[in-house]
Simulated assay, not measured.
Amino acid sequence: MSDAEASRSAPPQNLDEAGAVVRGAEPAPATTVLRHMVYGSGLTHPLDYLVLLHALFRLETSEPFTPRDIWRDLQAEGIRSAKNSSEHVGRDAVYAAFNRIIDARFIRRTSEGGGPGRFGRTRYELYRQPAYNPEYAPPSEPWDPTEDPAFPHVGAPCPGTPEVEKADTKTAGGAASRNAGRGVTGSGVPGRGRPPIPPGRAASGVPGSGGALPPHPPG
C-alpha cells in the first residue's frame, strides 16, 4: 500500500464530523447600516444613532449584551453629555435613547419565565428591519381618499362630462343658451336684442348714432 492510500484510509485525528461551528469571540469588523435606519426611522436625537450603531456592532459578535453594556461602551469611548460637554454621557440619557429605539420598533422588549405575582426575565430582540418586529404596525393613511371633493362617488356624474356642465349651467327660468351675449329679444340673457325705447328718446342708445325724432310743432 502506498503512502497516499494509507493517508486516505487513516481515521481522522480528533475530528468530530458532527461538531458545531460557531462564531469566535472577536470584535465585529463591520456592520450593515440600511437606509431606513437614517431616513424615516423616527429617531430624532443624535444619541439614538450612537446607541443603535453600538447595539448593531454588539449583535455581530453573537454575544448577549445589556443596555448597561452599551452605556459603558459609550463612556469608554469618551462620548460627552449633550447637556454638559465636560462630563461623559449619563446612564439616563443612554437608557432614554434605548427606549426611543424600542418605540421605533428596532428593538422589541419581551418577558419570559414570569408567573403570577412575579416578573419574568427581560429580553430585548434587535431587528435590522422593524417590519419583522411582531409589534410593528404600518402607518395608517392620514386622510381618506373619499373625502376629496373631486373623488367620483357612485351615481354622480364625473367631473368634465356633459352631464355636469349641463347641470351646472341650466337654471330654472333662465334662457336655454348659457353663453353671454347670445339670445333673442325678450330673453333673460344680456347683450342680445334691442332695449325698449322710451317716448321722447332717440332711436339709437348710442350718442351721435341714428336720427333724432322730429320736434313737435308749436302749439
Rank of each mutant, 00 (worst) to 15 (best):
Gly200Gln: 10
Pro159Lys: 09
Thr61Trp: 00
Asp92Gly: 14
Val94Ser: 01
Ser41Leu: 15
Ala176Leu: 09
Ser177Lys: 03
Arg118Gly: 04
Gln129Glu: 11
Ala131Glu: 15
Thr32Pro: 00
Ser85Leu: 13
Arg8Pro: 15
Glu77Pro: 00
Gly191Ile: 11
Asn14Ile: 00
Asp148Gln: 11
Ser9Ile: 02
Asn84Thr: 11
Glu26Cys: 12
Phe65Tyr: 12
Glu63Thr: 15
Phe57Gly: 07
Arg123Cys: 06
Gly208Pro: 00
Lys170His: 15
Tyr39Val: 15
Pro215Gln: 13
Pro130Lys: 05
Ala25Pro: 08
Ser41Val: 11
Ser86Tyr: 02
Gly191Gln: 07
Tyr49Lys: 03
Pro142Glu: 11
Thr169Leu: 09
Asp144Leu: 03
Pro134Gly: 07
Ala167Glu: 05
Val154Gln: 08
His153Leu: 10
Phe106Thr: 01
Phe65Arg: 04
Phe98Val: 06
Glu147Thr: 15
Tyr124His: 11
Arg194Gln: 14
Arg108Ser: 04
Asn99Arg: 13
Thr61Gly: 08
Thr169Tyr: 07
Asp3Trp: 00
Ile197Pro: 00
Ser85Lys: 14
Ile70Gly: 00
Leu34Ile: 14
Met1Gln: 09
Leu34Ala: 15
Glu163Asn: 06
Ala137His: 15
Thr146Arg: 10
Phe151Glu: 12
Pro46Tyr: 14
Ser177Glu: 04
Ile79Pro: 02
Pro12Gly: 09
Val51Asp: 02
Pro215Asn: 08
Val189Ala: 02
Asp168Cys: 03
Pro162Asp: 14
Leu213Ala: 10
Asn99Lys: 12
Ser209Met: 03
Ala55Trp: 00
Ser209Trp: 04
Ser9Phe: 05
Gln13Val: 02
Gly24Met: 04
Ser41Ala: 15
Thr161Gln: 13
Pro217Phe: 01
Arg105His: 15
Leu213Arg: 12
Ile197Glu: 04
Gly183Thr: 02
Leu52Ala: 03
Ser187Met: 05
His36Thr: 09
Pro207Met: 03
Ala6Leu: 11
Ser62His: 12
Gly181Ser: 06
Val154Thr: 10
Val189Ser: 01
Phe106Lys: 02
Pro162Gln: 11
Pro29Glu: 12
Ala25Phe: 10
Tyr95Ser: 03
Tyr49Asn: 04
Ser177Arg: 05
Arg72Trp: 03
Phe65Leu: 06
His45Glu: 08
Gly78His: 12
Ser177Thr: 10
Tyr127Pro: 06
Gln75Tyr: 01
Pro190Cys: 12
Glu141Asn: 13
